[in-house]
């Protein structure tokens, strides 16, 4: 009697599980279809892109990539180099300045600490649009417009408070005894930061680096405002140029370049999925 009940329950649970998988696979297909459509369209001949749900191209048009790469007045080589410069400098700036601030907030005693921490948290909600106009006026006066300085210099001044918050959460979990022991041994605060806190915080630094990389890579608003000359364009700005040329039926090339712009993000996601997932879950909690 008991065993048949248990069997029934087992069967019901298994059916439930199968149902769940069917549903989740369905959702996955809907979620991924647009991405596969983009990938497929980037290889299709122009006349096959619209009007059909078939993903497989009748013939693979690799020219979409080769022609798309040089379709704009400058080649995408330039745009990728520009994006890479901005991204690398931004990541470095974020890591240094935000870990400095986070170290001060989480491990050092000073007057006004909680006041400044509250201010820092408030800056999290300030929309970029609010500071944009005075910043633009200022950078214009400095002669920085159409250079990468307005995009990069703020990163060295810990302008992305989110990363400070993320690192503070992590630094706080490290045992205080470490600092105290090091202090007794005569270590300076900088030595403690460099030799103890940073090496123990590689996961948090990694998460910050990856997010910072992806967000800078995808950033559109700041480059749109500060970069005018096409030779300074980053990849997202270049992609937008394809839209202006719409009607000249270069959809395949536009999709091909769109796919390429996503490739670095996808690669980093696949390689560092664990860090990304944990980063979101922990920064969201506590």
């Amino acid at each position: 009697m008991l065993t048949s009940c248990a069997l029934q329950r087992d069967r019901r649970e298994r059916n439930g599980r199968i149902l769940k998988h069917v549903f989740l696979i369905g959702v996955s297909v809907v979620m991924l279809y647009p991405l596969f459509w983009l990938l497929a369209s980037s290889f299709k001949p122009e006349n096959e892109i619209f009007g059909s749900l078939t993903l497989w191209p009748s013939s693979f048009q690799v020219e979409n990539y080769t022609k798309g790469w040089t379709a704009l007045p400058m080649s995408f080589t330039t745009f990728y180099i520009n994006s890479a410069i901005v991204t690398v400098l931004s990541v470095i700036g974020n890591l240094i300045s935000c870990s400095f601030a986070a170290y001060a907030f989480s491990r050092l005693q000073f007057t006004g600490r909680s006041f400044f921490f509250a201010l820092m948290m408030m800056t999290l909600m300030i929309p970029y649009h609010v500071v944009l106009i005075p910043q633009y006026v200022q950078f214009l006066k400095l002669g920085w417009v159409d250079t990468y300085l307005p995009l990069v210099v703020p990163r060295f001044l810990a302008s992305e408070a989110f990363f400070i918050f993320l690192m503070v959460q992590f630094f706080r979990q490290l045992p205080r005894e470490l600092d105290e022991a090091a202090m007794i041994d005569g270590c300076s605060p900088f030595k403690i930061y460099w030799a103890i806190i940073l090496p123990l915080s590689l996961p948090a630094m990694g998460t910050a680096a990856i997010f910072s990389l992806i967000w800078t890579w995808e950033d559109f608003l700041a480059p749109l405002i500060y970069l005018n000359d096409i030779k300074n364009y980053t990849v997202p700005l270049a992609l937008r140029l394809f839209l202006d040329q719409e009607g000249q039926s270069a959809y395949g090339q536009m999709f091909a370049m769109s796919v390429l712009s996503l490739v670095p993000v996808v690669i980093f996601f696949v390689l560092f999925q664990k860090l990304i997932v944990r980063g979101i879950a922990t920064s969201g909690m506590k």
Partner: peptide
Amino acid sequence: ASIAIAIL
């Protein structure tokens, strides 16, 4: 957030 997706 990328422009590629907005275009898509």
